Amino acid sequence: MLQDLIVPLILVGLAELGDKTQLAILVLSTKTKKYLALLLGVMAAFSITTGLAIILGNFISTVVPMEYVSISAGLLFILFGLLMLVSKEDEETNVNPELNNPFLTGFGLILVAEMGDKTQIATAVFATQYDPYLVFIGVILALFIMTMIAIYIGQFIMDRIRTSIISKAAGILFILIGASFFI
């Protein structure tokens, strides 16, 4: 029973290290001071994608071709990257205008990016082998820990590097992550 929780927690946590969604969260956290709203949006998206993985298992991949999901996620990352590169900074608050609502931004980006992701597929597999409720708790706990780390690192970076440099680097990173969906 304990392994039903521990195995998904450890394996999903390790799989998320350096994953595109964690990089996206890190970048988003440099664009807002509303960290709680970002955390809640990201965790809402993770809860939905994890729940779908457990409930539907591989059903998603048979109904929606994964290439469409990948193309949508890639385009979304590229769009966010382009917006970051062309937006003007609000020097008074050091926050980009496109993150006026970090909850919705984090939610939308992570929801699309996680569909068909390796951790979602792993979650579906875990749910066939272990107690689905404990798998859900383990996966969400792993994603929560990794998200908190990414937000903290983003906040640390934002406090030490000029916002204009962060915006350019973030825009380029988002475009590269988006392009990786097409490879």
Results as ranks from 00 to 15, higher is better:
Ala73Thr: 02
Leu2His: 05
Ser164Cys: 06
Ala113Val: 01
Val27Lys: 05
Val64Arg: 05
Thr49Ser: 06
Thr123Ala: 12
Pro132Ile: 03
Val7Lys: 03
Thr30Pro: 09
Ala150Leu: 01
Thr49Asp: 01
Val125Thr: 14
Ile6Asn: 03
Glu67Ala: 13
Phe174Arg: 05
Asp159Leu: 14
Val95Pro: 05
Thr128His: 09
Leu143Arg: 00
Ile121Arg: 01
Thr105Glu: 04
Ala179Asn: 02
Leu143Phe: 01
Phe182Met: 11
Glu92Ser: 08
Ala73Val: 02
Ile137Phe: 10
Met84Pro: 11
Ala150Phe: 01
Met115Arg: 06
Ile183Arg: 14
Gly18Phe: 08
Lys118Phe: 07
Ala53Asp: 07
Met43Trp: 00
Leu38His: 02
Ser72Leu: 15
Val135His: 07
Ala53Thr: 09
Ile25Gln: 00
Ala142Cys: 13
Phe103Ala: 03
Gly57Ala: 05
Met146Val: 10
Ile165Val: 13
Gly116Thr: 04
Glu92Ala: 11
Leu14His: 07
Val135Ser: 05
Ser164Phe: 08
Tyr68Met: 11
Gly18Ile: 10
Gln129Ala: 14
Asp117Gly: 04
Asp19Tyr: 00
Ile140Thr: 13
Ile151Thr: 03
Glu114Gln: 10
Asn58Thr: 15
Leu56Glu: 07
Lys88Asn: 11
Phe144Asp: 05
Leu173Trp: 07
Leu173His: 08
Gly106Trp: 00
Leu134Val: 07
Leu83Tyr: 13
Tyr133Gly: 08
Asn100Pro: 04
Val69Pro: 04
Val86Lys: 09
Ile48Asn: 00
Lys88Gly: 07
Leu83His: 13
Lys168Val: 14
Phe182His: 11
Gly171Ser: 03
Thr147Leu: 04
Phe126Leu: 02
Ala45Cys: 02
Ala37Asn: 03
Ile60Ser: 10
Ser72Gln: 07
Leu76Ile: 10
Gln22Ser: 08
Ile145Asn: 01
Phe174Pro: 01
Gly74Asn: 02
Glu91Met: 13
Ile166Leu: 08
Tyr130Met: 10
Leu39Ala: 06
Asp117Glu: 13
Val27Gln: 00
Val42Ile: 12
Glu67Gln: 14
Val64Cys: 02
Glu89Cys: 09
Asn101Trp: 10
Ala15Cys: 07
Leu134Phe: 10
Asn96Cys: 14
Asn100Phe: 12
Glu114His: 04
Met146Asp: 05
Val42Arg: 00
Val27Ile: 15
Leu11His: 12
Ala169Ile: 15
Ala24Asn: 02
Ile54Leu: 02
Ala73Leu: 00
Ile165Asn: 11
Ser167Val: 01
Val125Gln: 12
Thr128Lys: 15
Leu5Val: 06
Gly154Cys: 08
Phe182Ser: 06
Leu134Tyr: 08
Ala53Tyr: 03
Gly178Phe: 09
Ile157Pro: 00
Met84His: 12
Ile60Tyr: 06
Ser164Val: 13
Glu16Phe: 06
Ile165Thr: 15
Ala122Asp: 06
Glu91Phe: 10
Ala142Ile: 14
Ile6Leu: 14
Ala150Cys: 04
Leu36Pro: 02
Phe107Asn: 00
Asp19Ile: 03
Tyr68Ala: 13
Leu2Cys: 01
Leu39Asp: 01
Met158Asn: 12
Ala53Phe: 01
Thr105Lys: 03
Met148Ala: 12
Tyr152Ser: 12
Ile71Glu: 05
Pro8Gly: 05
Ala122Met: 14
Met158Glu: 13
Ala127Asp: 03
Glu114Lys: 00
Leu109His: 04
Val7Ile: 11
Leu14Met: 15
